[in-house]
Structures are given as structure tokens and as C-alpha cells.
Simulated assay, not measured.
Amino acid sequence: MADAIVRPTYKDFTARAPDVYAGLSALTKAVDASGLDKGLTELVKLRASQINGCAFCLKFHLGLARKAGVAQEKLDLLPAFREAEIFSAREKAALAYAEAMTKLAPGAASDAAWAGLRAEFSEDEVVFLTVTVAGINAWNRIAMGFNFAA
């Protein structure tokens, strides 16, 4: 019988790489301090985590989104945000950007995508949205690589 494959748990990761954990946490703190709406950033994190299939991050950020006051209907309709009238133009622009930057298909950072985002967000807000997407994608890859339990 083969030995079981053992990967680091979330607790192991934070203990073995405290500076990495602190760095990733600092990204979140910087975004929170920017004044960007917490509900919006949690929706962005959830959408990227859905695309990446990260159950650990979905569970974690669903809790934070609820705590931030995101309506359950938005959480339910998030995969179909483009068609759901409950999402504002601002939310749709942020979610479309999160999808483009998570999938990184050719043309993801097109001028048209940028113009759509800039129509709803200031230059500073775009910087922090980009950091939000980059941060959650890093967490998704860590959580999935180590197979953190959801």
C-alpha cells in the first residue's frame, strides 16, 4: 500500500512561511485601507475563486462577504452577474475585470476592458482592484496547491 500524500495544512503554511503569509495579508490590509468597498472586493475574490475552483477560498470569502453585508441574492447569482439586474454597473465592471485578469486570455488587458473599468472606477481604485485580483489568485493557487480543506 502506498504512503498517503501529505500536504501542508493552512496552519502548516502560515507557520512555515510566516513572511509570505504576512505579505499576502498586507495586500488585503492595503486594499481595505484604500476605502474600496469591502463588499465589492469580496465579490471580486469570490468570482476569481469560482473560476479557479478554490473551495477553501470560496468558503472563506463567502463568510466575509456575508459579514460585509453582501446580499444573498448577489452571492447566488454571482456566476451570472452579467445577466443579473441586481448588480450595479460598477460591480459588473469590477467582476468582468476580475474574470479577465484571472483567466488571462489573450486580450484580457485590452484597451476596451480598461476603458470599461475606468468608466466606473478612479485610477487609484483600479490599482487596488488589480491588487485584489492578484492577491486572491495567489491565495487560490496556494490553497489548491496544498489542497487546503474547505
Rank of each mutant, 00 (worst) to 15 (best):
D76P: 02
E120N: 14
P8C: 02
F148A: 05
A108R: 04
I142L: 09
A80T: 14
S49F: 05
R118T: 12
L129S: 09
E123Q: 09
G116E: 10
A94H: 08
A15Y: 00
L62F: 11
L36M: 11
S49K: 05
L129I: 15
P79W: 00
A105L: 09
K11W: 01
T9C: 05
E83F: 10
S110Y: 06
G23R: 11
D76Y: 08
E83Y: 05
P8M: 05
N147E: 15
K74L: 04
A113D: 09
E125P: 01
I142P: 05
L24D: 00
Q72Y: 11
G69E: 10
G116I: 11
A2D: 13
A113Q: 09
G107Q: 02
L78C: 07
N137L: 00
L62W: 07
V127D: 02
L129E: 04
A65K: 06
K59F: 05
C57W: 00
S110N: 10
L64F: 04
A98T: 03
C54P: 06
V44A: 03
G145F: 03
K103S: 05
A149F: 03
M101C: 13
S110F: 08
N52W: 00
F13K: 03
G35S: 02
I86H: 13
D37A: 12
D19K: 13
A2E: 14
M144I: 14
A80Q: 11
S34G: 11
T14L: 07
P8I: 04
E120S: 14
L78D: 08
V44D: 06
A15W: 01
K74Q: 12
I5Q: 14
P79D: 00
A84S: 14
A113Y: 07
A149Q: 13
A84Y: 07
A33M: 02
G63Y: 04
Q72A: 15
H61R: 03
A80L: 11
V126A: 12
L58T: 11
K11Q: 15
I86P: 00
D76I: 11
T9Q: 00
K38T: 10
C54M: 02
V6D: 01
A68Y: 02
G135V: 02
T41G: 08
R7S: 09
D76R: 11
D32V: 03
T14E: 14
L24W: 15
T14D: 02
N140T: 11
E42T: 02
A94F: 10
F121Q: 08
V44P: 12
L117T: 05
C54W: 03
L62M: 15
L104S: 04
V133Q: 07
A94G: 12
A112Q: 15
L77Y: 13
D124V: 08
T9Y: 01
K74R: 07
G23C: 12
M144Y: 04
E73T: 15
A113F: 02
E120M: 02
A108W: 15
L46H: 03
A84N: 09
R82G: 13
H61E: 05
I5E: 15
V20E: 00
R90I: 01
A2Q: 13
T9F: 04
D32T: 09
A112Y: 01
S34W: 06
D37I: 01
L43M: 04
D32H: 13
F87D: 10
K38L: 08
G69T: 09
W114K: 15
D12H: 11
L117W: 06
A112P: 04
A93G: 08
D111E: 15
L64E: 15
G39N: 01
A48R: 04
A150S: 14
W139S: 02
A113W: 08
D19C: 00
